[in-house]
Amino acid sequence: MTAPGGERTIAVVTAGLTTPSSTRLLADQLAAAVRDTLDGRGIPRRVVTIELRDVAHDLTNNLLTGFPSESLREVLETVVKADALIAVTPTFSASYNGLFKMFFDVLDDKALVGKPVLLGATGGTERHSLVLEYALRPLFAYLQAVVVPTAVYAASSDWGPHATALRARVERAATELVDLISHEPTKPPIDPFANPTPFEDLLKG
């Protein structure tokens, strides 16, 4: 575990299949928000982005032989040793894609125990946004990771006029991840109804 005040390493795993991809774009936005939040708190950091498409053949060979290549071993060690993980996948057939699943299949099933994780997914339509809750969260719950409350889904429409709403979700998720990394509790949102004005005072105008 990183000592207080020490450098935090953030591993970013993205399972996009094309270059460029909206999955990589979302991963970059999440990583930038986490980096900026850490910088704002004066916490040194290192962000390492892993494109799974670059090790796709190595993943297949690992599944077939049971042994990782040297390049894949380095990628796996980066994730294992990281202080936190950002994991982003495109939505395929209402779930994460096969490349994403292969990576976490070959990763040791104890590698993410207690590790803070921020989840993200992309898709063509908002109808698939629940993929984060019914597909990704159960996977990382099985791996015993500590997943932040806010997961971020980006549909095609989120990259247009509604980019502001996406940015707000990204920043909230990044803050939650940094709170876990820095061992600071997330502040609950202010309840506007916590201290209501007495009805008698309202009648007085």
Rank of each mutant, 00 (worst) to 15 (best):
F193W: 14
V178K: 05
E126K: 09
P90S: 04
L99G: 09
V178L: 07
L118V: 10
K115C: 02
A135D: 10
S93N: 12
V170Y: 13
G66W: 03
L72V: 08
A141V: 10
T164W: 08
V80R: 13
Y153V: 00
D105E: 11
A145R: 11
A141F: 10
A168Y: 04
T150Q: 15
Y153E: 06
L166H: 08
Y153P: 03
G123E: 12
K110R: 11
A87M: 08
L177G: 04
L119K: 09
P116W: 13
S69A: 06
V146M: 11
H162N: 07
L132E: 09
N97L: 14
V88Y: 07
K81H: 09
P138C: 15
P192R: 06
Y134A: 12
R169L: 01
A82F: 07
K115F: 10
A82S: 04
E176L: 06
A111H: 01
L166I: 00
P90R: 09
V117F: 12
L130F: 08
E171P: 05
F100P: 03
R127P: 08
L107S: 02
D179E: 14
I190C: 07
P188K: 05
F67S: 09
F67E: 11
A87P: 03
A84C: 10
A151M: 00
A94W: 12
G66M: 01
L63A: 11
F140G: 13
L136I: 00
H128R: 04
A84F: 05
G120A: 05
A165G: 06
K81C: 14
V178I: 01
F100K: 13
G123T: 11
A154Q: 00
P138H: 11
S182F: 01
E133N: 09
H162T: 13
S182Y: 10
K115V: 14
P68T: 12
V170F: 06
A155P: 04
S71P: 02
K110T: 06
L72I: 04
A163P: 02
I86K: 13
A154I: 03
V147F: 11
P149A: 09
T122W: 15
D179I: 06
D158P: 00
V75Q: 12
G124T: 00
P149H: 14
T150D: 01
P68V: 09
S156N: 15
R172D: 14
L136M: 13
V79Y: 14
V178N: 00
D105C: 04
L132T: 10
S69H: 08
D108K: 08
R169W: 10
I190W: 15
F104Q: 06
S156A: 10
F92L: 13
K110D: 14
S71L: 06
A151S: 14
Y142E: 13
L130N: 01
I86A: 07
W159F: 12
Y134T: 11
D191P: 04
L118T: 05
P68S: 14
A145L: 10
S157K: 15
F104E: 01
